[in-house]
Structures are given as structure tokens and as C-alpha cells.
Design a protein around this nucleic acid. Structure first.
Length: 915
DNA sequence: TCTGTGCATGGAGTG
DNA sequence: ACTCCATGCACAGAT
């Protein structure tokens, strides 16, 4: 693979660090590839003039209505451009006698784009030119939402010149490009990027890019539009909401305006050095709301995700140095300057913009932001969040022509607040200055207001998720997607947007770098606990269409004419008879229903959708599986048992505002999976650990804060016998004992597995979800056979630890003693024979023994169980709790460690703002 | 004793 | 190795 560098100069990724994860075959034959680091397209020439418009990338055949997707390599051979401006599938085109514009295209290969390739605008085809084989890289059908390189111009040109040829048009565009290139340096090319980017990104749905706030287009822009757009293609490649082009009216407007896309800052010193994570993500709608009815335009400058300390009671908002120096007034004294503030209600605030000397550098802060932030968060539910507030962000923008600074807050639960904000409440009058950064900073007005949601999605920066988001939104089958604007908002906010905003590593710094201090187990955060792999598991290829397999530079692309469908999570089971089943959990009653294996499930599925088993098409119908089978299946596949599901649903219901209810969608599937799947089987707990300042600790304080090892200055010596140090030592000892215990458990599990391999015949095995196996039998259900096998083996192994765990599982149903430190052990058990362990656990032992003529062992087994079973009493012992724990503190600690919940603070330790 | 202020510290990211 | 920045922490002033 030739050396490539991300076109996004703020990213700078190059060559081998970039994976060719996604790409689009362009009508011109060029190929666009996303930078794996920043999500930008780093190499391509021109966009497909057919699809890469401002819409979702999906077009319908003008003749038959068939959905076609831009960038679909396979579909390139399936589509025809219509002179009327639309596209047609080839079948229809042939039927209608249309000659293919692309039919004369000549291939020019793939991946050979160069800087001058833009001028090579001869229509080409990549079909059949993509030879080679190698790594299996399955690429989802991507939605390229780029507005593209001169796309708008192209489209406009096309519309204006219905009789013109694209070839001519592209040649003209190329000529403009070449001229611009020759007259401008690279820097010049990039300079106007931001503004133009704004003008495009914020462009009105109607296509008048000048008509919306934030549309900062001037003569300079228009003169260099082609260059600019080339430079900004990276941003335009970000996915956009579904089918906006197909929508009309206010909804469409809202849809576009609420796209939360990170935009390179419009201007300011050092803007080119601004890291993408500080790129503002304010939506067009929010900008418009801020600007109100005036002619003011809002120029997003930068954004910062609030840290705990930012939103804490100290009231100091740490400003990124580059941002502060780029967009805030220059200050030479640490005291800085006061900035006058206004909120959406017209209330004025004063922030002190200042800095601290720090390591031969500066640390810029805005002081006194607490009242402002608090005033913005005085809503139900926000109080508890205050102090964490890490899902909130503050965006700094500038209102033109007043040239006032605007500061907007975003917080996950407050999107409605902004919606309710009356734009008229925002003062439009203000300070006028020809030089924004040259002397009126003491009068800068900062208008703070809410805007939508920034629901940071951990680990979602993977470009795949962009594709996922795209496909979610694009899925024809996901009709509900467009049903509700709110849902669209939520999806965009909670799922789509973050994924397209910041590279994963960047965002993780904002979110996770101090994660040890910020335990995001709040409900909001639970939604984040969906890995990409899990999400991908729920993607279903469109069954109706066979994919076209194309190999591009040793990567295999599997292209579908239809987008992947985001389906409900289900369980696939292969019976011993060879039959395959699909089990799905009803979203209403949570009962498992059996479906044919080839059924594609919608994001939401209830019993009434069960058209394959009319006897169980109602939630009132009993479960088909026996309790033991059901339990096994639930546990094995991490499907949340009913009671836990209900509990979480209640939590969701209580935490979500009524107006946020929406129709089921793929997003629901994601969020449900995130909330239910990831921690299925675990106690339905949600711990909240804020970094709110801890009250002064008294001698002997054993709270979770005080028992942390002393850090930094080594106040405690190794020989120190203070309460804190003793507690730390005690905890360490406990952890070591547990570690040893886990090791022994692993060894026992490995031995158990080895025994099973010897004991079980492969011909008797059947697969369950390709991972777990159970043994078939002529007289017993396979699951029960499995249980019996394990039981026998278990009785042979005499493993007390495993027996204990089994017994706990049997009697407890769910391991309430889960602990992060024990994940390894649990995982090891899961890997080894969890199926068997669970099954044997779920099978009444007496029943089994009687069935197998082993009644004589009942008494013995009972005695054995009694020796290590009592779930509550023996847990601590089984975990190796030392017996020297005698103090109240130690007991408390034991409780805390044995349960997932953090130690409840003493009443006097509860921070005042949490009380 | 509490709170605010200014600086220090160290983890994480970057070159 | 360096920079950034989130947060800790000591101290001074306020209550």
C-alpha cells in the first residue's frame, strides 16, 4: 500500500497507521478512504456526483424506487445516471433505453489517487480492477454523506444545466481546482477551510448556505470554494442523518441542523493547531437558537468536555491552552481579565479569564463559572449529576457581527431545555468591535445556554460505528427511525454523533483518562457500555440480497445493495439433530421465543410479532423452555433474567423523561444491549462515585477516599501503623489471598476442561452458538444431559471452589458477589465450561441422582454441599477473607469488597451537595 | 472549621 | 522527553 497521509492536517496520521477500513468507489473511479485515526477522508479526488450530496447517500432509482447507495462498489454497475438528475438502477435504465453514462467509463485502477487525480476526471470504473486477495476485511456498506468536493456546485451545475455533461462539468471543476492550486499554497488552501466548512456544514437544508447562522461565507470563500472543499472533505465525510434529502419541511430542517459534527474552528490564532477534540460540535439548530431571530451568525470556536473539576464547586473551568490563546484575549498577567457573561435569560455573569504558571507554561482557567453552570443545571436530575458532569460540554462560539463570545453548555439530560429556550431571550445587542481580539475583551459577552446532548459514547469513535450509525439511519427496514424527531435527536446525540466527533483516543482522554476517579455507572453511562463488537453482532446483512464480493488491495469488500439492518439480539442454537433455532427475548415480557433461524429481527420484537408460533404470539403464553433450559440459555448468552430486566426497565422509565419516549429503533437495541446485555447476570446496581470534594477527614476515617494509599508525597512510611496504612495493608492482603484463590480456581477449571475433553465424545456433541457444547442423549434433553455430565464430573473433581461457585449459582441465581477483580476468574470459568457448570447448577441434584440410580449419594452430597454452600455465610470464606477482621471497619470493608457497591459513606462523609 | 486560591503533581498524550 | 491538563493539596482568609 502506498504511503498516504490523512488529508486532515490536524490529524496527520499517515501510512501504516491508517487502515483501509472503508471506502467508496466514486463514479470517477477514484476511491475515498477514511482515516482510521480521525475519520477523515485522506485520499480521494472527486466525490460521486450522484450520491455524495448533502443527503444520506441513499438514492432511489427514479424508475423503480430501488434503493441505491453511494459508494456501493457493486452498485456502481447497477446504477445509471439520468440526465434528468436522478439515478436509475441499470435494469430500469436498460428497460427505458437509457444509455449509461458510466457505461463508457474506463477503469483507472484503485487506490492510485494522487494530488493531481482530481484533475483526472475521466469517468472510470473500478469494477474488475480490484484484484488481489489477502486479508479478509469485511466492510460494511458505508454511507458517505459527504457533501463532497464541489458537490453542491456539481449538483447545482447539473440542475442548472440539465443538458450539460458531467464530463464537462468536472473538467471545469478540475480547472478551477488546478488554478486554485497553482495560486495558493497549502496553507492558503487550508486557511479558509474552516469557514467554508462551516458554511457547508451549517448550510440550510434548502441549500442556501448563506441563510443560516454560522454560514460564514464571504467573497474569499466563494473564490476558493473548490479548494476549500477539497480541504474540508474530511468533515463532509462524516455520516449524516438518514435520508434527509428525502425529507422535506421542518423535520428535514431540524434533522440537518441538529447534526453534531465537529467543525474545525472558524478562525483565531493557532486554529490550525487546535486538536480535533476541541472542535466545536454545536449543531446548526443550536446556533440558530442562540442567534435567535437576528441576523447574527454564530461561529463555533471550540469546545471542551467538562471534567469533574470543571463542573465542580471550585468553579474553575480549565481552558485548553491552545484554545485560550487562540480565541481568548491575550493576557500577560496571571490575574487575567474579567469577562462579562450573559446567559440565555439575559442575566449577566462575570468570568475571570486568567492563567497560572505551570511548568514553564500556562494553565488557563475561567473562574467563577459555578453559578452559571449551576443555573444551567437546575433541573430535575441534574443536581445529582453535578460534580460529575462529564457528559457535559461547553462550547465557545462567537456571534457575528457583534463579535461576542457565546458559551453554550450541553448536557445529556438537558436537550429539552435548549429546545425551550426562547431565542429572543438571547440578547443580540452587544459589543461591536472591528477587532474581536484587540481590546474589548473586558466587555466580552458570553452567552451561555443549553444545547443538545453530548452523550459521549465510549469507544465509539471507531469508524465502524460511523458506518453502523449510518446504516442504522439508512436502513430501509428501520422505518421507525424517521418516525420521531426526538428519537432522531436522541440517536444522533447518543449514538451517532459522538462516533463521528472525536477520534477514540482523543475522546478517551476526555472521558476516561481519569476514569479511575469517575465511575460512570450512572444510567447515562450504562448506555455507553456497548462495545463495537457487541453492536456489530446486532448488525444483520440484508437477507434479500446477496453481497457482491470485491477485493480491493488485498481487502475483501462485501457489498450489499441494501444496508445492513440493525436487528434485535438473538440467540442461535444448533440442536443435536442439526436443526438450528433462533431464540429471541420479547421486549414486552422478556420471555424467550423460538423463531426460525433465518428470521431477521427488528430492533424491537415482542411476542405479538411471533408469526411463526401462533401459540406463543402473546406475552401471556407460557415459556416454551423449561425453567432449567431457560435459565441456562439466559445465563449462557447473558440475557438478562426477567426480574433484572424489569428492574432496569424501571430505572430507565424513571430516569427518562416522558417526552423522550420514542418508537423502538435500532438505537433502542443498542441502548438495551448496552444496559442489559453487558451486565446481564450481574446485580442491577449502579454506583455513583463523584469526585465531589470530600469533607475533611478525621483521624481514623475509613471511608473509601481515606483508605486509598497515600499518593504523591509519601506521607506514610512503610512502617506506618496508622489506620489508613493498616487498612491499605489489610486490603492488600485480602487481594493477594483472592489472587491465589483465583489462580487455584483457574487451575481447577483447566483440569476440569481437560477431563471433559477426554470424557466427552465429539460425535455426541452439539454446538450451542458455536461456543458451548452439550451432549445429546436418547433419553434426556441435551441440556439436561449436559448438566448430568457436568454433575458427574463435578462429583469426581471434588473441587470445593467450583462446587461453591456452582452452589452459589444454583441458589443465588445471580452472582451478587461479582467484583471487577474477579472478572478474570469468572471469564476463565466462562471460557472453560460455564455451560456445564450452569446446567449442573440448575438441575436439581436430587432429581438427577434419583434419575441415575444414585440416590445413595444424596445424603453424601447434601452433606458436602452444606459444608461450602451457604451463600451468604460462606462467600467471604470462599473469597479468602482473613479471619482477623474484627473491627467494624474491617467488616465494612468486607461488605464493600464482596459487593459491587462502593462502601456507603458515613453520614458525615456525604458531600453536602450530594445530600 | 470551612472555603477559596494558587501552585504542584502526575497521568496521558504527543513528537 | 516534553507538553498538557485534571486534580490534589497546602495555605491564607473567611466564617
Amino acid at each position: 500500500m502506498e504511503s498516504k497521509t490523512c488529508m486532515n492536517e490536524l490529524c496527520g496520521a499517515s501510512t501504516t497507521s491508517i487502515e483501509w477500513r472503508r471506502g467508496w468507489a466514486l463514479r470517477s473511479g477514484d476511491f475515498a478512504v477514511l482515516c482510521d485515526k480521525c475519520g477523515s477522508a485522506f485520499e480521494q479526488s472527486v466525490f460521486c456526483e450522484v450520491f455524495h450530496s448533502k443527503d444520506s447517500g441513499w438514492r432511489e432509482c427514479s424508475l423503480c424506487g430501488k434503493h441505491l447507495h453511494c459508494g456501493c462498489i457493486a452498485s456502481r454497475s447497477l446504477i445509471e445516471l439520468l440526465d434528468s438528475g436522478g439515478v436509475s438502477c441499470k435494469i430500469c435504465a436498460k428497460k427505458s433505453g437509457l444509455d449509461s453514462i458510466s457505461g463508457d467509463e474506463k477503469p483507472d485502477g484503485f487506490g492510485t489517487l494522487r494530488a493531481d487525480s482530481a484533475s483526472n476526471l475521466q469517468p472510470t470504473s473500478v469494477d474488475n480492477q480490484l484484484g488481489g486477495s489477502g486479508d479478509k476485511m469485511k466492510v460494511l456498506q458505508l454511507g458517505n454523506n459527504s457533501e463532497g468536493f464541489g458537490l453542491r456546485h456539481l449538483l447545482q451545475f447539473r440542475n442548472d444545466n440539465p443538458d450539460g455533461s458531467f464530463g464537462k462539468m468536472k473538467q471545469e471543476e478540475a480547472a478551477r481546482l488546478d488554478m486554485a492550486k497553482s495560486s495558493m499554497g497549502a496553507k492558503d488552501i487550508y486557511e479558509p477551510m474552516a469557514q467554508t466548512n462551516l458554511s457547508i456544514t451549517l448550510g440550510s437544508p434548502g441549500g442556501n448556505s448563506n441563510s443560516v447562522p454560522g454560514a460564514v461565507i464571504d467573497e474569499k470563500d466563494s473564490k476558493t470554494s473548490s479548494i476549500i472543499q477539497q480541504g474540508t472533505r474530511s468533515r463532509h465525510l462524516l455520516p449524516k442523518p438518514p435520508k434527509l434529502a428525502l425529507a422535506t419541511g421542518p423535520e428535514a430542517n431540524a434533522g440537518i441542523s441538529q447534526i453534531r459534527v465537529a467543525r474545525p474552528p472558524a478562525e483565531g490564532r493557532g486554529r490550525n493547531q487546535l486538536l480535533p477534540r476541541y472542535w466545536p460540535r454545536i449543531t446548526d439548530q443550536e446556533l440558530q437558537q442562540i442567534s435567535g431571530d437576528s441576523n447574527s451568525t454564530i461561529v463555533p470556536l471550540f469546545e471542551k468536555v467538562l471534567s469533574a473539576s470543571d463542573a465542580g464547586r471550585i468553579g474553575r473551568l480549565v481552558l485548553p491552552k491552545a484554545c485560550a490563546e487562540a480565541y481568548f484575549p491575550p493576557i500577560s498577567q496571571p490575574e487575567g481579565l474579567p469577562l462579562r457573561i450573559q446567559d440565555v435569560k439575559g442575566k449577566e455573569w462575570v468570568f475571570q479569564f486568567r492563567f497560572w504558571p505551570n511548568n514553564n507554561s500556562r494553565m488557563y482557567v475561567l473562574e467563577g463559572v459555578t453559578p452559571c453552570i449551576q443555573s444551567m443545571q437546575l433541573q430535575a436530575g441534574d443536581t445529582a449529576n453535578f460534580g460529575v458532569a462529564c457528559n457535559a460540554a461547553v462550547t465557545f462560539s462567537r456571534m457575528d457581527p457583534e463579535r461576542k463570545l457565546v458559551m453554550g453548555f450541553r448536557k445529556a439530560s438537558n436537550s429539552v431545555a435548549m429546545q425551550d429556550t426562547q431565542p429572543s431571550a438571547i440578547p443580540n445587542g452587544g459589543h461591536s468591535s472591528e477587532s474581536f481580539f484587540s481590546g474589548v475583551f473586558e466587555n466580552l459577552s458570553i452567552i451561555s445556554g443549553y444545547s443538545g446532548v453530548l452523550q459521549s459514547l465510549k469507544g465509539s469513535a471507531d469508524p465502524h460505528l460511523n458506518a453502523l450509525s449510518k446504516h442504522l439511519s439508512s436502513s430501509p427496514g428501520d422505518v421507525s427511525w424517521l418516525k420521531s424527531e426526538k428519537q432522531e435527536d436522541k440517536t444522533r446525540e447518543g449514538l451517532l454523533l459522538p462516533s463521528m466527533l472525536v477520534p477514540e483516543r482523543k475522546r478517551s482522554r476526555n472521558i476516561g483518562s481519569k476514569s479511575k476517579r469517575l465511575l460512570f455507572d450512572r444510567l447515562d453511562a450504562l448506555e455507553l457500555k456497548l462495545t463495537w463488537e457487541e453492536a456489530q453482532d446486532m448488525l444483520r446483512p440484508p437477507l434479500s440480497v446477496m453481497p457482491s464480493i470485491i477485493t480491493i488491495e488485498d481487502h475483501i469488500f462485501e457489498e450489499y445493495e441494501d444496508p445492513p439492518v440493525f436487528g434485535k439480539r438473538s440467540i442461535f442454537v444448533v440442536r443435536t439433530t442439526g436443526g438450528q433455532e433462533q431464540w429471541v427475548q420479547c421486549d414486552g415480557c422478556s420471555k424467550l421465543r423460538r423463531l426460525p433461524v433465518d428470521i431477521l429481527l427488528p430492533p424491537k420484537w415482542t411476542c405479538k410479532d411471533n408469526a411463526w408460533d401462533l401459540s406463543r404470539c402473546s406475552c401471556s403464553a407460557p415459556e416454551e423452555l423449561s425453567p432449567s433450559e431457560l435459565d441456562n440459555l439466559l445465563r449462557l448468552h447473558k440475557v438478562t433474567p426477567h426480574y433484572c430486566t424489569d428492574f432496569k426497565k424501571r430505572r430507565i422509565a424513571t430516569s427518562h423523561r416522558p417526552n423522550q419516549e420514542h418508537e423502538p429503533s435500532g438505537l433502542d437495541t443498542l441502548s438495551n444491549a448496552a444496559m442489559l446485555g453487558d451486565h446481564a447476570g450481574e446485580p442491577c446496581t449502579a454506583s455513583v462515585a463523584t469526585t465531589t470534594r470530600h469533607p475533611r477527614h478525621r483521624p481514623g476515617c475509613s471511608c473509601i477516599v481515606c483508605i486509598q494509599p497515600p499518593s504523591g508525597k509519601g506521607k506514610h512510611k512503610p512502617t506506618c501503623t496508622c489506620n489508613v496504612c493498616m487498612t491499605v495493608k489489610r486490603r492488600f492482603k485480602t487481594l493477594m489471598m483472592r489472587k491465589k484463590k483465583r489462580q487455584s480456581e483457574r487451575e481447577a477449571a483447566i483440569a476440569l476442561r481437560n477431563q471433559q475433553h477426554t470424557w466427552g465424545g465429539p460425535e455426541e456433541e452439539a454446538e450451542v452458538d458455536s461456543n458451548s457444547k452439550h451432549v445429546s442423549s436418547s433419553h434426556l434433553d441435551p441440556l439436561e444431559n449436559e448438566a448430568r455430565s457436568t454433575s458427574e464430573l463435578e462429583s469426581k473433581s471434588q473441587s470445593n471452589n467450583l462446587s461453591t461457585k456452582l452452589t452459589e449459582t444454583v441458589k443465588g441465581g445471580i452472582d451478587l458477589n461479582c467484583h471487577p477483580d474477579r472478572e478474570d476468574a469468572q471469564a476463565a470459568l466462562n471460557r472453560v465450561s460455564m455451560m456445564r457448570l450452569l446446567q449442573v447448577a440448575s438441575l436439581p441434584l436430587e432429581t438427577y441422582l434419583k434419575q441415575n440410580g444414585l440416590a445413595s449419594l444424596i445424603t453424601e452430597q447434601q452433606a458436602s454441599s452444606a459444608s461450602h454452600v451457604p451463600p451468604q455465610a460462606t462467600t467471604a470464606e470462599s473469597e479468602g477473607q482473613p479471619h482477623e477482621h474484627t473491627s467494624a471497619t474491617q467488616e465494612h470493608e468486607s461488605e464493600e469488597e464482596e459487593n459491587c457497591e462502593p462502601e456507603p459513606p458515613e453520614p458525615d462523609e456525604i458531600p453536602s451537595d450530594a445530600q
